[in-house]
Design a protein around this nucleic acid. Structure first.
Length: 490
RNA sequence: GGCGACAUAGCCAAGUGGCUAAGGCACGAGUCUGCAAAACUCUGAUCCCCGGUUCGAGUCCGGGUGUCGCCUCCA
């Protein structure tokens, strides 16, 4: 298995430090507001990585944190007249609702900064003792970047160059403008804890170092986060952790790309952010995952509304085919343990999946494979003649078994096909303000017209429905209806 | 200003040295159909520009152009 390592800037063979045990940490969320779709991508991506590693036989210990104390949280809590920790606790609950809505696999451990105050204070004290940090008269503690010669190794920045880009105002007591806060003294009215340096709270970067060290040990296998955390957050994590332990902090540094909307980074201030909550109101959760997995996890991507619609129509096609496969197998007495078709592709499904996923989690290629699988299934059922229907039925079941085995790693095909199909149809009917009874009436009217060979009448009924967004499908068993938007996109 | 990423068909997107450059959307043709639809089959790009390395490059190196990100909180 190869994983791209941002530290070395190349794909490397992934070997855990300790046998089959993988220690993985992903920087989680600062809970100052509802999560947006970018948080969803990061959570989905790292859950997928953990799931795939488990699928490949590793024992994974996956830790995510919540930053529940920070400037933004304090500000927002004050706006609502709430205690900062009460506020962040509420926001964590909201986040959990969103993640459950997305059916994201849980991490093994969730940590909160507020529960790590003692450990953070010890961490900071140790850094002071070792000469990597210094307190100021005001009660702040700063990390002395100059003392850590390797500073900049992840982001490839040089300390001297960083000085050029630094803001003019320098906080009181800082020895060097690029030094960053490990501990922030409390301002009036702010939440605070007692410390050797007076009342205050942890700096942002130290939280992750302390929580990762405590839950996973001195060196972790895979560290992850959004691309925007590479500098300074992760650079600072390395400086803190490696100064303390003298050991390498993480073997693999991985980054999830950022989501853009119309070419611009998604952000509150631009007013272009899409919350998970709103996304789930509009699209099925598997469609959201499908969109995320249709691009490589590390690329920054521009995601438009149309992409979710296309994803939904793909899933509609997949689920419809799955339903047809199950019906076919049912009708012709399929048994997955019996011999199937001669050119059966089911045996390759899992191996193809593993092959592309082993290459830095190429989910896009994994999704591409789905199309050929379902095409094969549809073509086989269509071509099935009387004498090989049983074999075809057996093959359909074998394919479904393999599909579920592999693609559960991506969280796809978890839903009951009939429910999924009905759910989407229902959603679109609401959107175009039609009810099913009306459609059924029209179908009956058209059936009568057809019976009396009044094709003009029949066609006009069909055209009328088509104009409303409903397409009809005549078959030997009768006429069924479907939502046009689930087929014709754009 | 500093650091970095990316640039593949109308659109989305995989592919980091080697058979005919995945897959999807849209477009067109066909099978099927009373006609349609769905499904299936077929159909499209020499990879931003210039130069170099190599038997051979979308894939490596240098230069240019463009887009974006980070350098302040940010998944």
């Amino acid at each position: 298995m190869k994983i791209y390592n941002a530290m070395t800037r190349r794909k490397e063979e992934f070997v855990p430090l300790e046998g089959k045990n993988v220690r993985m940490y992903a920087c989680g969320i600062t809970v100052y507001d509802l999560c947006h779709i970018g948080h969803a991508r990061q959570a989905i991506v790292y859950a997928m990585i953990a799931d795939y590693l488990r699928y490949m036989g590793y024992n994974v210990k996956y830790v995510r944190n919540y930053t529940d104390v920070d400037d933004k949280i304090i500000k927002r809590a004050n706006e609502f007249g709430k205690n900062a920790l009460d506020f962040s606790e509420e926001q964590i609950k909201e986040t959990e609702i969103d993640m459950a809505g997305l059916h994201v696999t849980d991490a093994d451990i969730y940590t909160k900064a507020s529960e790590y105050i003692d450990k953070i204070i010890n961490f900071v004290s140790e850094l002071i003792k070792k000469g990597y940090a210094y307190p100021t008269e005001k009660g702040d503690v700063y990390y002395s970047v100059r003392k850590f010669p390797e500073y900049g190794k992840l982001s490839r920045r040089k300390v001297d160059e960083l000085l050029n880009g630094v803001r003019v105002e320098v906080e009181e007591g800082k020895e060097n403008p690029i030094d960053f806060a490990l501990w922030k003294s409390a301002k009036p009215g702010e939440i605070s804890w007692d410390s050797p340096w007076g009342k205050g709270r942890p700096g942002w970067h130290i939280e992750c170092s302390a929580m990762a060290l405590d839950t996973l040990g001195e060196t972790i296998d895979i560290h992850g986060g959004g691309r925007d955390l590479l500098f300074p957050h992760h650079e600072n994590e390395i400086a803190q952790s490696e100064a303390l332990t003298g050991k390498k902090f993480a073997n693999f540094w991985t980054y999830c790309g950022l989501i853009k909307i119309n070419g611009e980074k998604m952000s509150k201030s631009l007013g272009n952010s899409l919350t998970i909550r709103d996304a789930l109101k509009k699209y099925n959760y598997e469609a959201i995952k499908y969109v995320m997995f249709s691009k490589h996890y590390a690329s920054d991507v521009d995601i438009l509304d149309i992409d979710y619609q296309i994803a939904e129509s793909h899933l509609y096609y997949f689920y419809t085919t799955i339903k047809n496969m199950l019906d076919f197998a049912n009708n012709y007495g399929g048994n997955e343990n019996e011999e199937g078709l001669a050119n059966d592709i089911s045996a390759e499904i899992v191996s193809n999946f593993v092959e592309v996923m082993d290459d830095d989690f190429n989910t896009s290629a994994a999704l591409a494979n789905l199309h050929s699988i379902f095409k094969y299934a549809n073509a086989s059922m269509k071509a099935a003649k009387k004498n090989n229907r049983r074999a075809t039925a057996n093959t359909m079941l074998k394919i479904l078994k393999e599909l579920h085995e592999a693609y559960s790693v991506l969280g796809l095909f978890e839903q009951n096909p009939e429910h999924f199909i009905a759910g989407l149809k229902c959603k679109y009917l609401k959107k175009i303000r039609l009810d099913e009874d009306y459609i059924k009436e029209q179908i009956e009217k058209r059936a009568e017209a057809k019976k009396s060979k009044d094709f003009e009448m029949a066609d006009s009924i069909r055209d009328d429905l088509d104009g409303k967004g409903i397409i009809l499908n005549d078959s030997r068993e009768g006429t069924s209806w479907d939502v046009k938007a689930l087929y014709k996109i754009g």
